[in-house]
Amino acid sequence: MKPAAFEYVRPDNLQGALAALRDHPDGKVLAGGQSLIPLMNFRLSRPQALVDISHLTELTGISVVDGAVEVGALVRHQQLHEHEEVRRLLPVLSEAAGEVGHWAIRNRGTLGGSLTHADPAAELPAAAVALRATVVLANADGQREVPAESFFLGFLTTDIQPDEILVAVRFPVPPADVRYGFAEFARRPGDFALAGAFVEMGGDASGSITWFGVSGGPERRELDFPDDAQARKAAFAELAAEFDTGEDAVYRRKLAVTVAEQAYQKAREGRR
């Protein structure tokens, strides 16, 4: 099928985009289009107007400011994956970005789009929660900041308001003794993961796991990682038992334990 007709707005800058969004209450932001256009092609989404921000270069920067890596909303997944500073300071984020879809999708899909779309199986929303990122939102009146953990409200739902644009995500650089590991399971490379996990581990083996794909959104849980493999598995299973997995609950919970263990092993190997 083909998209239904819509009014197309191409602003010159962010201010123009925010003004246009306020003037078009039924409008939607168009970033990379890798989630929105498939929905429009099948007419599952029929926005009255699209405010195209994909060309706004002011949202494409990556910079290190005050101990945090600030990533513009329009940074493409492939850029995030390949960026030298991101690889050095947040290797787990670079790794996760490289697992989003396929090369051609990553060349166009954006960080802001992934977080706003909030697919429960998406890597980057979970990465933002795991890395304690802050989401920066703007509307025509100003900006506000929301911790990633409270930005995601459930299946395809976030705290963003209709007149807001996600402009940047700020990832604090983790302290030197904190290490991260990431693992996911998908049936084919590039498919959405059936389950995935980020493990964060401090020097004293305390830390957290952030799962994705196992329920309506990122699930972050704090714990002390037991040294003993059996005890660890039991601890992961106890946490996974709480998830509202929908279909295939037994299988999904098993997968959640498996990916958590894989991510744990990678964190132990000393990735940040």
């Binding site: 197309y8 289009g33 256009i37 492939q78 051609a104 166009r108």
Partner: peptide
């Protein structure tokens, strides 16, 4: 497929592979 999955519509945009079914011509 018109949903980004099959890859048959891939073209190069500024030298990089992208899906031509997931982009409007005006863009």
């Amino acid at each position: 497929c018109e949903q980004g999955v099959c890859g048959a519509c891939t073209v190069l945009v500024d030298g990089e592979p992208q899906r031509s079914c997931l982009m409007f011509a005006v863009q």
